[in-house]
Design a binder for these strands. Structure first.
Lengths: 139, 139
DNA sequence: AGGTTTTCTTATTATATTAATATACTATAA
DNA sequence: TTATAGTATATTAATATAATAAGAAAACCT
């Protein structure tokens, strides 16, 4: 299940992507418009900034703005930034791989093979969808 | 990510499915063989029993045994019993559906549509895989 | 009938994660 | 130099996960 953090992040990014102007947008504007706790949103946007997907400007006229075009931002990468691995098991994760402590051979583990399949089919969908024309909730 | 509960459950069921005889198997035998905390496994098997996938016998010669043939037990149904929804959002879950509180129209929500797609592709894989010849870890 | 085996029930504990809030600090534009 | 707005740190509350403990209930055996 996607956490609220991820969902909020997607909504906030989608909000930024929908901006006509490419001027910075206030955290409070996003938080009010998308009904997200402001403080919680602050930490989410910071995470996204550290991931390099958006930038910020301080002081009056400041705020957050996207660093790439919406069509160049995959949903899969956003989920990875906020939620972590997309795979259902650490031992099949591409970006957050961890070896099973109880598994001697991944090639012979049915669960590993199965979950790798699931991961691939999920990625195929999430990597082909971007922030372009992405709307969520009331939008 | 799948919880240990689900992983343990899959390993235990796989162990039962691999039995030649259809006689009850002791919890302690499974727990030792698969390296699972016995008490934790007890509660997992109990959950699976309540879900109707296996039955138990008390007293000497007792234990747990499958109620169906391994090839008739889908991995998807096991995950649902132990982990809950397979979908990444409550609003696209087939078995654990919950309406989004902030969403006025699911048909017009990109996230809903996207996650429904992911759910379908995941189910396509998990519903076609059963406990037959399913081995995990060292087996 | 009585004792043993084994599952079942209930409660408790520890740890981690998620979600949210509070306070103070730093950078920047006007 | 002041108001603005993001940044850092820390604390809290709620929930979920993982594991453990003690005893009750049922089935079996002699």
């Amino acid at each position: 299940m996607l956490s609220k953090k991820t969902k909020y992040g997607l909504k906030a990014l989608s909000y930024l992507a929908r901006q006509e102007q490419h001027t910075p947008v206030l955290i409070s504007e996003i938080s009010e418009s998308e009904n997200i706790s402001k403080k919680f949103l602050e930490s989410i946007l910071l995470t996204l900034k550290k991931s390099g997907i958006l930038a910020s400007k301080k002081g009056k006229g400041g705020g957050y703005y996207l660093l790439k075009q919406p069509e160049d931002i995959k949903i899969s990468s956003i989920i990875r930034m906020l939620e972590g691995p997309i795979a259902m098991l650490p031992c099949v994760s591409l970006n957050y791989y961890q070896k099973c402590d109880d598994c001697t051979s991944e090639e012979r583990c049915s669960l590993n093979i199965l979950m790798a399949e699931v991961r691939d089919s999920t990625l195929k969908i999430l990597e082909n969808k971007t922030l372009a024309n992405f709307h969520c909730g009331d939008h």
